[in-house]
Design a protein around this nucleic acid. Structure first.
Length: 232
DNA sequence: TCATTAAGCGTTG
DNA sequence: CAACGCTTAATGA
């Protein structure tokens, strides 16, 4: 098991070094990439990026937790995904040269790595490892969305909560995340699309079944594979 | 009837 | 002070 990243905040350089997409870079190449990435600290509720903005960066979470949300004019909001440390996002818009399609909001104080467009392009042109990483990531996301549709249409609320939480601990997308995650039940509600009190009920069901334990302000995963499989 | 939700408020860590 | 628990009224299948 990896160490809990909250207790051991990584530096920007470490995060880059440990990223799977950086595996085949020489020291010189790595230095070049490092020069094209900077770090930003986002307070709780702050925005990493906003819908409609031109896309200038590819983002990676160093520490903290982000949610990607799509807000409607009416004030309704749907959370598309939660991004824990080790997760990178925004490559879709980077590849297509479109404006940003969602907001990225910090659920807690969060440190983000921001890679400039030209660096992203350079990696695309020079690193097989980077390209493979993007392929795997896109494929994994596709699988996630298929699973999401499936659970939305076929499964009950408990199972939807279970699967939704499981996606937060996806080892391919978010390597190096510990089993504990500090996320409020209200936020899990936004992630899953159900109310706070319903989330609470589901969490108790899942706890009783031994898949996770519920703590004040967070959860700890005990059986990730079981959570994935959970079908009520 | 039954499950769920929003809203309000008291309690707790 | 934010997260959580509990109650209540409204909603809709």
């Amino acid at each position: 098991m990896a160490d809990n990243s909250e207790k051991n905040p990584a530096t920007l350089a470490e995060t880059l070094r440990n990223s799977r997409w950086a595996c085949d870079l020489s020291d010189a190449e790595f230095a070049r990439v490092e020069a094209g990435v900077f770090e930003r600290k986002i307070d709780v509720g702050g925005y990493v990026c906003r819908r409609g903005e031109p896309v200038e960066h590819w983002f990676g979470v160093i520490e903290g937790l982000l949610k990607l949300t799509s807000d409607l004019e009416s004030g309704k909001t749907a959370t598309l995904a939660g991004i824990p440390p080790g997760g990178w996002f925004g490559e879709g818009s980077m590849l297509k040269t479109e404006t940003r399609r969602y907001d990225a909001v910090a659920l807690r104080e969060t440190r983000v790595a921001c890679m400039r467009r030209e660096t992203f392009q350079w990696l695309l042109d020079h690193s097989i490892c980077f390209n493979r990483y993007l392929l795997v990531q896109l494929n994994e996301r596709l699988g996630q969305f298929i699973g999401l549709l499936e659970s939305e249409r076929l499964l009950d609320t408990d199972a939807r909560v279970a699967r939704c939480l499981a996606t937060l601990f996806n080892p391919v997308l978010y390597p190096g995340t510990g089993p504990h995650l500090a996320v409020s039940q209200e936020e899990i509600g936004y992630l899953t699309g159900v109310s706070r009190q319903r989330v609470n009920r589901s969490l108790k069901v899942l706890q009783f079944a031994g898949y996770l334990t519920v703590e004040y302000g967070g959860i700890t995963i005990r059986d990730l594979a079981g959570l994935r499989r959970f079908a009520g």
